[in-house]
Design a protein around this nucleic acid. Sequence first.
DNA 1: AATGAATGAGTCTTCATTCAT
DNA 2: TATGAATGAAGACTCATTCAT
Lengths: 231, 231, 231, 231
Amino acid sequence: MAGEKNKEKLILDSAVALFTTKGYQATRMEDVAKNAGISKGLTYFYYKNKEDLFMALTKKAFDQFKDEFREVYKSNGKSGLQKTSDLLIRICAFAKRNQVYYDSIINFLDLVKQYNNPETREMINPLILKSSHFLKLLEVHQDPAKIGISIVIQGQKDGSIRPELQPEITFFAIWSMIIGYEKMLGPIEFEGKDMKVYPENWEPGFLKLMADMLKGTIQATKPATVQGSLF
Amino acid sequence: MAGEKNKEKLILDSAVALFTTKGYQATRMEDVAKNAGISKGLTYFYYKNKEDLFMALTKKAFDQFKDEFREVYKSNGKSGLQKTSDLLIRICAFAKRNQVYYDSIINFLDLVKQYNNPETREMINPLILKSSHFLKLLEVHQDPAKIGISIVIQGQKDGSIRPELQPEITFFAIWSMIIGYEKMLGPIEFEGKDMKVYPENWEPGFLKLMADMLKGTIQATKPATVQGSLF
Amino acid sequence: MAGEKNKEKLILDSAVALFTTKGYQATRMEDVAKNAGISKGLTYFYYKNKEDLFMALTKKAFDQFKDEFREVYKSNGKSGLQKTSDLLIRICAFAKRNQVYYDSIINFLDLVKQYNNPETREMINPLILKSSHFLKLLEVHQDPAKIGISIVIQGQKDGSIRPELQPEITFFAIWSMIIGYEKMLGPIEFEGKDMKVYPENWEPGFLKLMADMLKGTIQATKPATVQGSLF
Amino acid sequence: MAGEKNKEKLILDSAVALFTTKGYQATRMEDVAKNAGISKGLTYFYYKNKEDLFMALTKKAFDQFKDEFREVYKSNGKSGLQKTSDLLIRICAFAKRNQVYYDSIINFLDLVKQYNNPETREMINPLILKSSHFLKLLEVHQDPAKIGISIVIQGQKDGSIRPELQPEITFFAIWSMIIGYEKMLGPIEFEGKDMKVYPENWEPGFLKLMADMLKGTIQATKPATVQGSLF
DNA sequence: AATGAATGAGTCTTCATTCAT
DNA sequence: TATGAATGAAGACTCATTCAT
């Protein structure tokens, strides 16, 4: 029937909604089920356990995240440099629109860090390690990065990004900046009152700095004359 | 005698050790007590509840964090630009040396974001809001930023950082980069195997980009020849 | 099978047994469960918390209590006056037979007192106020009184109770006497040894007084003339 | 010095205040101490434990309670009957003024009931049984009753109370009524809205009934002749 | 007399997970 | 597939009481 959405998806959507409102820890599997209009037991039929559900959610987040990268990559009539700032803007929009997805991605980065360090790997909840979604994530989680690197290369080809930069390192620097930027949004808004940094200035200022970094700027001696628009 | 440390500190140290090993959630208050060699009750005598203990830990983390900034700020014979890269290195070292402290700081940034948004503020665990340590943190959490901004201004005075940059925004951009950089360490190490980005390249590459951003670089036309050392 | 009683009831019965033996405070929820032959968790599945369980118990007590009133009311071949003394006897038997139920009823009266006073209402444990059983009790707790009032009216119709009495007030006076009588049973038994009041005399004496009050009595030879003022 | 009240009393007063506000269970010994302006330890110097403190409070309550009886007994120019209604009024005033004292007295009556029944005696908290105040109470708790009985006898001598009544039983009936009356105050106020019993009518009506019981009343036109059996 | 740090037994409550149907 | 009753391990937190000083 029409309204008979796939149950698996129903559960996931319910989880997203509740994780957003109450957070992962505070959300009970029973609530996820109830909110999805199904029974608790069925939830465990589709997802082995809470961690598995969260990993499924993370996987979906990565897929959508990848789409953002892909769309920026494919956008026409823009320089590679412009695409990097588009990327930052889109990712922040993505984070705002779907905080849980974004958080799950960041959480996954932490997980990967633990996973890569043999000393800390055993501290990871075994249920996570056993999750099929986690394993898939390990395989695909570089995909956004790969696209990002391509964007940098595009920028170097079209001359908007300095050719001497190493694309991989450059992209990861950009991604770092984006991650940090998003984390910074909270404190900055707060400190605004006595610190002259208002969200309004912060975004363009940050983008400008990133652009400077990527395209290079005329040394202080003679003032930069060209970059009238943002870049 | 030697072992007669202040109990309050004893508990905090115990918490740090256990949070590091098992994580905040997985650590039971009883274990914190046992590990500190005291009774469970005494833990609650010094800290109202688990959240309060964590906020106390965060406060201590911020204090030490601030010291890192302060020491960099006071270091002699270095340009402001050099100090910013010192800062990145020190903060990453700080994060590695005391992951729990660093994580608690990042966690606090998220908290501040929720706190500043009236819609999300009520989602914060009330025990956190009631913690005296949380309140103190709200007061002092910009202190590192203030020092950081001073460093940028120093750099502008000594000519190592472009004078046209707005110090506040610049500092927050740096801090963003640092935060993102640290988060990136995990995935990069992992992706290294098939992506040419090795930790060895990553740090200097990242620092170089940051420096480029801050000091300005010669435009693409004639390749930058000079900056053989890092800056 | 025989032992397959409804779980909800099983728990309540277990609670009654344990509250009787050890008292409400001293009874742990775990014991209630164990005694009922089920798991602790299931107890919380059927009753939100200990207070809710107690309110459910009180509700059941009120239902049975109401039955006592109802049966007295419907008993044939008795005058209204006789029914009032039947009531006293039955209620005391009820109290003896099921002390916990009776105590829960008395406790509920105290609760109602607190609840009706805006100043003291907030002192009531919120878990009680939230209990659905408490809310039901608020609705039905006058039912026994309503029946009692009917009994008084019956007595007035059959001439066994003075017609000039106000039925409502009269009933509440009777109920007061019953409550007080029951409370008095303890001390009287004790004081008996040096005070001439033995339980054997006490009940008929008390009933006689109550009857005198209700039906009116022939005045002692010469009526007291002085005490006009007070009454 | 002037303000140097006896510590023992200070503690007791503090306990009364807190038990009134929060109830016995919810009041912590620490609060009692703090509120009395002394240390927790000292509380245990003066009172063996919480139960002992409560028994001391009960003892004081009984002493004051006894004073009420004594004052009524000694009041001049009043008939014995008038004194009984004075007693009811005073006791209710006492209960209202000092609810905790009154409650402790009622609680003690329950305790006595348990104590007198060999089967239930062992259910009493041993700390209570060991309290010296409890032992003293066992000795003196009949004193109010003794005075009350004297009042009834007075009434019989002055002709205001029927001479054929047994004074002890009569007094306990009166006390029962008083106890019940006080317990009834709550529900009646509540039921008032749809039951015609308003507190304003309730007190005089109740007093009138009690007086009728004690002094006897002229029978309504034709005496009920049938119900010989019961009375 | 007086303090208050220290103890630890005691309990409610939560919730992920299972399983008979 | 689907249900929801049933489980039980886990853990935060309280507070009466003690005792070294």
